[in-house]
Design a protein around this nucleic acid. Sequence first.
DNA 1: AACGCTATCAACCGCTCTCGC
DNA 2: AGCGAGAGCGGTTGATAGCGT
Length: 215
Amino acid sequence: MKDKEVKTRMKRGFWKPEEDLILKNCVETHGEGNWATISEKSGLMRSGKSCRLRWKNYLRPNIKRGMMSEDEKDLIIRLHKLLGNRWSLIAGRLPGRTDNEVKNFWNTHLNNKRSCRGKKKHVKSKEVNTHSPQDKMQEYPAETVSNQEVATKTALDSWIEEMQDFNCSLLSPLSMNNVPFLEDEPFIPILDDIVLLEAFTSTGKEAWNEFQPSL
DNA sequence: AACGCTATCAACCGCTCTCGC
DNA sequence: AGCGAGAGCGGTTGATAGCGT
């Protein structure tokens, strides 16, 4: 019950500029990550969670605000197709964008189901390439991490083999589309390989065009 | 001008994950 | 191994801006 009391005493709702300033100073003093300490020391009466969210989504340096570029939209679509609603993972590939922003963008601009609610028409999904690692992965149950890893690795291996058979050269993702990647986030082994291969070697324009009529 | 509807997005909630003990 | 605390994630909510009637 004490938890509930603390919770109800916490301030909620929109952040004021002065609160942002205090939070910013506190993060600089106590370091990013010590949210419980920051929450306590700041005197903002905001929960650690709330502080973390505010910092991560708005106050963190190098946050990019405003409209998504065509490249970003394209990348979101491709990554979502591959990863599903793994917003933090997708956002990690979009410098300056947050998971919350990507999630909101998807739900408002790109989510067909939601777009259908209004006047926008649902667009039939295009035929998928049956040789992609993603499709191969669907053959495996992905309930557990180990299953996922095995599935992913098997899919990647066989796909790379096929690609080599077709004499395909797999370019480094870092050099493509002029899309910079966050230096502070290491690629997740195996999964990232698939993400990058899929995202950067297919025809992204087709994927984007699927969504265009509904926008 | 007033009203209703829709789109947008900041923030919250609840769950899972991770790490230290 | 088990437990608890804190951090992180994805889903959802709610305020409000904008537009049409």
